[in-house]
Each structure stands twice: as structure tokens, then as C-alpha cells.
């Protein structure tokens, strides 16, 4: 088996009396597409937030390539190689598409006021690198023609794609997509799935939250299922499809809450 790029080890997260995540363990292997599914409120996005440093777990460990992420700041985690998109689009609305991607690319840069004031070779190199990488990514997402438009003026689908481009610009090893197909029609969803496969082929490992079962089944290598903050199943799409606990969670059974 391939190397484990991320390990979530027995993570519990409590908000006061509410247990949002209850001893969740999962891992992601280098180069795979892992699906994270579950009904509404199962803790999928919370899990994302723990991985990317928005929440600090009450108990447990998150390790990225062997080193702990707990206690690191959000921007430090990004710089280590984990990038994400948001369930509700959170672009920098009054910046252009290209500028949005440049902000992502800047995660790998370090020029500051002085290098900018004197247009030092480092500043020029980083600007050129950012623009090249940014335009390349916009091209990849089919947004090259919209580079100079304000993010807020892009169509809904383009905004979703721009979020992915922005996250990819930080050059992550692990790309976390939080319901990237939300609000898409079947045609757009199919295109997005093809896109996610191409993203993986570029060498990214992908963690994908998705609601649409069919879509997840088609694109992921492995799936982890959460319900009420607990992991209830894990396995290949075929395993998950036949798993009674998963079917119960999604369709409801008599003695469970309906």
C-alpha cells in the first residue's frame, strides 16, 4: 500500500456538551481520492475543520506525513501542504480571478515590503512564478478567459472552479474539497468528477466531501462514512454500497430516528 499522507487518529471534538466528532480515525493514502460522506450534520465539514486547523481537537492527533498538525496555525498547515475549498463559496469577491489564485500561490512566497519596494530579483522571480502558475491553473480550470474579472462577477460554476484553482495554487499535497458539486446539475457534476480525476492525475491527493452518493461512488477510491460524529463504515465504493449500516444511515430504519 502507498504511504499514508494524512492520519486522523482517534479525534474527539466537543463544543461544550455537544460531541461533534467522537473518536474518529481515518487515513488518506498518497495519490488516492478519499470520499467522506454522511448525512447532514454527520460531522464531515467539522472533520475538515479539524484537519485544516480551524478547530483544535479535544482529544486525539492529526498527523500529516508523520508530523502532528495539532496546535499549528491555519496558515502554517496550508504551507505544509493541505489546501481546501469551502462548502459556501468564500472567494475574495472584489479581487479578480487571477488575483484570487495569486493569493494562493503566495503561500509559497516570502517577499515582503522591502523586496517589493526595491523590486528585488526575489520579488520578480516570485511574481513571475505566481503569474505563470496562476494562469496555468486558470487554464486547467477553463477560466483563463476570465482572469481579469472580479470573482463576484463569475458564474456560480466558475466560482466553484476558481475556489479549486485557488486551493491548488498553494501547491498542496492534499487537496480537500468540501462539496464542490453543491448546486450543480447532473451534467456539471459529471464534468466536475472528470476534473477531479484530472486533478489527481496531476499528482494531488484528494479528500472529497460529497452528498451525492452516485457521484462519490464513481470517482473515489475509498470511502469513509460518518454519522452523528462517528465513523460507521470504511471501504471501497462497492463495500459501502452494500453496507447495511450505511444504508440505514441514509435511508433510516425503524428503531432509528426517522
Amino acid at each position: 500500500m502507498a504511504e499514508r499522507i494524512l492520519e486522523v487518529d482517534d479525534v474527539t471534538l466537543r463544543f461544550g456538551g455537544l460531541t461533534a466528532l467522537d473518536s474518529v480515525s481515518l487515513h488518506i493514502e498518497e495519490g488516492e481520492i478519499l470520499g467522506l460522506i454522511g448525512p447532514n450534520g454527520a460531522g464531515k465539514t467539522t472533520c475538515f475543520n479539524v484537519i485544516t486547523g480551524v478547530y483544535t481537537p479535544t482529544m486525539g492527533e492529526v498527523r500529516f506525513r508523520g508530523s502532528s498538525l495539532v496546535g499549528l496555525k491555519k496558515h502554517q498547515i496550508t504551507r505544509k501542504g493541505i489546501a481546501r475549498t469551502f462548502q459556501n463559496i468564500r472567494l475574495f469577491r472584489s479581487m479578480t480571478a487571477l488575483e484570487n489564485v495569486l493569493v494562493g500561490a503566495d503561500a509559497n512566497h516570502s517577499s515582503g515590503v522591502l523586496t517589493a519596494l526595491f523590486r528585488s530579483p526575489k520579488h520578480r522571480r516570485e511574481e513571475a512564478d505566481g503569474h505563470e502558475r496562476g494562469m496555468d491553473l486558470l487554464e486547467f480550470m477553463g477560466l483563463a478567459g476570465r482572469a481579469d474579472e472580479l470573482a463576484s462577477n463569475l458564474s456560480y460554476g466558475d466560482q466553484r472552479r476558481l475556489e479549486i484553482a485557488r486551493a491548488m495554487a498553494t501547491q498542496p499535497a492534499l487537496l480537500c474539497l468540501d462539496e464542490p458539486a453543491a448546486g450543480f446539475n447532473p451534467q456539471e457534476k459529471a464534468e466536475l468528477m472528470a476534473l477531479i480525476r484530472r486533478v489527481r492525475d496531476r499528482g494531488y491527493t484528494v479528500l472529497l466531501i460529497e452528498h451525492d452518493m452516485r457521484l462519490v461512488m464513481g470517482v473515489t477510491d475509498r470511502i469513509v462514512v460518518l454519522e452523528f460524529g462517528k465513523k460507521i463504515a470504511e471501504g471501497t465504493p462497492a463495500d459501502i454500497r452494500d453496507n447495511p449500516a450505511v444504508i440505514a444511515a441514509y435511508l433510516g430504519v425503524d428503531e432509528d430516528a426517522s
Partner: peptide, 28 residues
């Protein structure tokens, strides 16, 4: 000069959405 650089972009990203900026690697 400063505005058209990483610094200016980081400022604007922070203004637009501080949490998103932080998650894009900006030490806001």
C-alpha cells in the same frame, strides 16, 4: 510598489475574508 505585490494581495484577501485568507496560507 507595495500594493502590487504579495503584501498588497495579502491585505486585500484579509479584508475580503479573513478566515479564507488564513486558510490560503496568509498569516493575516
Amino acid at each position: 510598489l507595495v500594493k502590487n505585490s504579495r503584501v498588497g494581495r495579502a491585505w486585500e484577501a484579509t479584508r475580503e475574508d479573513e478566515d479564507a485568507a488564513e486558510l490560503m496560507g496568509v498569516p493575516t
